[in-house]
Amino acid sequence: MTAATAAGGDAGGPRRFIPPLRAAVDARVFDHPLFAGVRGFADLLAGPGWPAVSMLDARLALPGVQLVEQDAALLADGLHYETRIAQGRIATRADNWHDLFNALVWASLPSLKRALNAQQCRHIAAMAPGQRNRAQAALTQFDETGVVVQVRDPAVLAAWDAHDWRALFEPSHWQGGGIGIVAVFGHALMEQALLPGRLLVGKCVLVQAQEEAACIDTVARAIGEGGVLGDPLQLRPLPLAGIPGWHEQQDDAFYGNADYFRPLRAGRQYPPPLLPTPIL
């Protein structure tokens, strides 16, 4: 069993992921909870052929931005990918799982996508050409492998702080509302989950809130204000296969796999969860 995540954060080290051919993907894979946020686009995911980029653009009708097929003519403008988005065009490769999932996340979580793009563009403008800072790395990691998590129970948070994985993944916490997944944001996670059984690791931003509806707005606002994602170390790793019901085998031996459920590194600390802004 291979441990992996997208953006070089897997238990076995960075490697290039090669997704399966469209015809080789069993449509039942999209029943997994990881795909809950894009399940409304089942025909685009499980149809017999790839949607053309122009058709995808018309179908999703993203406000203020257009999906444009990435080709040599488009890239000839020399713009940074994020800068082009800020000007209203998302470069999208045809017949490509990664870019299809990216488009679907734009359709389902546009406020997060727009906040990330605006913050990336600020950093691009501040950096010398070809250079990247740690905030840009954090923003990219969240874009590729991000998960928004709602936490209500302080005991659950303490277990996560300590990498006490068995306590964190106690089913009663997830079934009783102490913790829950609000949204899988990372489109690279979705691409890798096309191959069932992979041990994916999400990079998480937490919100301490009673109402799930407030979580996405809270994260989008914090990204826009620069209050989160200033460094990759601020992101909390979450071994997604440990969530009750997210993996076929979840016995003691499974949770004892220290290559996947990694112990806390000495000195590693995580920022506290975000708090929703009170409505005045």
Score class of each variant (00 low, 15 high):
residue 1 M to N: 11
residue 1 M to A: 09
residue 9 G to L: 11
residue 10 D to Y: 12
residue 14 P to I: 10
residue 16 R to I: 13
residue 18 I to F: 09
residue 23 A to D: 14
residue 25 V to L: 09
residue 25 V to Q: 03
residue 26 D to P: 09
residue 29 V to I: 11
residue 30 F to M: 03
residue 32 H to T: 00
residue 33 P to N: 02
residue 37 G to Q: 02
residue 38 V to L: 04
residue 41 F to C: 04
residue 45 L to T: 08
residue 47 G to S: 00
residue 54 S to I: 13
residue 55 M to S: 14
residue 55 M to N: 12
residue 56 L to N: 11
residue 59 R to I: 00
residue 67 L to W: 09
residue 72 A to T: 14
residue 77 D to N: 15
residue 79 L to Q: 07
residue 80 H to C: 10
residue 87 Q to S: 12
residue 87 Q to W: 08
residue 87 Q to A: 14
residue 89 R to D: 03
residue 95 D to P: 00
residue 98 H to L: 01
residue 102 N to A: 01
residue 102 N to W: 04
residue 106 W to G: 07
residue 106 W to C: 06
residue 108 S to D: 04
residue 109 L to N: 07
residue 111 S to W: 04
residue 115 A to Q: 00
residue 115 A to S: 02
residue 117 N to K: 02
residue 119 Q to N: 04
residue 121 C to G: 00
residue 121 C to I: 06
residue 122 R to Y: 05
residue 123 H to A: 04
residue 124 I to L: 15
residue 125 A to F: 00
residue 135 A to E: 14
residue 138 A to H: 07
residue 143 D to C: 06
residue 147 V to M: 02
residue 153 D to Q: 03
residue 158 A to K: 14
residue 160 W to T: 07
residue 171 P to C: 06
residue 173 H to T: 05
residue 173 H to C: 01
residue 178 G to V: 06
residue 179 I to R: 03
residue 181 I to A: 13
residue 181 I to S: 15
residue 184 V to I: 15
residue 187 H to P: 12
residue 196 P to F: 03
residue 196 P to A: 04
residue 196 P to K: 03
residue 197 G to W: 04
residue 200 L to R: 09
residue 202 G to V: 06
residue 202 G to H: 06
residue 204 C to E: 07
residue 207 V to H: 00
residue 210 Q to F: 08
residue 215 C to N: 10
residue 217 D to K: 11
residue 219 V to E: 11
residue 219 V to Q: 11
residue 223 I to L: 13
residue 225 E to R: 14
residue 226 G to L: 13
residue 230 G to Q: 13
residue 233 L to P: 05
residue 237 P to A: 02
residue 239 P to V: 01
residue 240 L to N: 01
residue 241 A to S: 13
residue 242 G to F: 05
residue 246 W to R: 01
residue 254 F to S: 08
residue 255 Y to T: 08
residue 259 D to W: 07
residue 270 Y to I: 05
residue 278 P to Y: 03
residue 280 L to I: 08
